[in-house]
Simulated assay, not measured.
Amino acid sequence: MIIISLLLLASLLPHLTFTARVNVGIVNGSEAKPHSRPYMVSVQSKEHHICGGFLISDRFVMTAAHCRNNSPIVTVVLGAHDLKKSENSVRFTVHSYHQHPNYTNKSFHDDILLLKLEKNVKLNDNIKWISIPAEEGDIEAGSVCSIAGWGSLITNGTRSDRLMETNVKVMNNTECEHKWGKNDFSSSQMMCVHDKGGSCDGDSGGPLVCGDTAVGVTSFGDPDLCNSLKLPEVYIKISAYLPWIKKIIGNFN
Rank of each mutant, 00 (worst) to 15 (best):
H66E: 07
P38Q: 03
H81T: 01
E47Q: 12
S42E: 11
G52Y: 05
S57A: 11
T75Y: 08
Y39T: 01
H35L: 04
F60C: 04
A65V: 12
N28T: 01
A65N: 08
V61A: 07
S57K: 09
V41F: 09
S45V: 08
V27H: 03
C51Y: 09
H66M: 08
M40D: 05
R68V: 10
G53Y: 03
A65W: 04
G29L: 02
L78G: 01
A32V: 10
E31C: 02
G29I: 03
N23M: 15
A32C: 15
D82H: 09
V43K: 02
V61E: 03
H35M: 03
T63M: 04
I73Q: 07
S42I: 07
E47K: 15
S30L: 08
P34G: 12
N23R: 10
V27G: 01
P34V: 06
L55I: 12
A32L: 05
K46Q: 14
K33V: 12
C51I: 08
C51P: 11
S30M: 09
P72T: 03
N23K: 12
S45P: 00
I50E: 11
Y39G: 01
R68M: 13
M62I: 06
Y39W: 14
Y39V: 00
R68H: 02
V27W: 00
S36I: 05
E47W: 05
N28S: 15
C67Q: 09
H35V: 01
P72K: 11
V76D: 05
M40W: 05
A32G: 06
I26A: 05
S42Q: 09
V61K: 03
R59T: 07
C67N: 11
Q44K: 12
G25I: 00
V24Q: 12
T75C: 07
G52A: 07
A32D: 04
S42F: 09
H66K: 10
F54I: 04
M40Q: 15
N69P: 01
V41E: 07
M62Q: 04
S42C: 13
V22M: 07
V27P: 00
C67M: 10
P34A: 12
H81R: 04
H49Y: 04
I73E: 06
A32F: 03
N23W: 00
V22W: 01
V74Y: 03
L78E: 00
I50W: 10
T75D: 15
R21T: 02
V41I: 13
G52N: 03
D82L: 03
S36M: 06
R37S: 13
I26C: 11
Q44A: 07
P38G: 06
S36L: 08
M62F: 06
C51L: 09
I73C: 00
T75G: 12
S71T: 14
P34D: 10
P38C: 02
Y39C: 02
V22N: 01
I56W: 11
M40Y: 02
N23D: 13
E47I: 02
S30R: 14
I50R: 14
N28Q: 15
K33A: 05
A80D: 09
G25L: 01
C67G: 14
S45N: 14
H81G: 03
R59W: 06
F54C: 07
E31Y: 13
P72C: 10
I56P: 08
Y39H: 13
F54L: 10
